[in-house]
Amino acid sequence: MRLTCPYCGSRDHQEFTYRGDATAVRPALNNTSIDDHNAYIFDRSNPDGVHQELWNHTSGCRTHLVVERNTVTHEVLSCKPVGPFARKLK
């Protein structure tokens, strides 16, 4: 599998570290609800199909990418820098 890092170009996936579901969003710092934190940590939709996920380019620029990837075909649909994605979540 190959991922196209927006900073470094097309690279083998073993240059990256998988960091899991990008739709699992941490509750805000001032949110102290145990349920909300439990949901963030333990509940996964684990789709068979398009999955939005985080990969850290650990052997490259060491930033996270938001990758859209099909978990059935392994087709990578997009690789985007995490910044704009993460800011939109707030």
Binding site: N56, T58, V82, G83, A86, R87
Partner: peptide, 14 residues
């Protein structure tokens, strides 16, 4: 390092 990067990039990008 990866733990910190996750929070820097994804959780608290601001």
């Amino acid at each position: 390092m990866e733990h910190l990067e996750y929070y820097r990039d994804f959780v608290w990008p601001n």
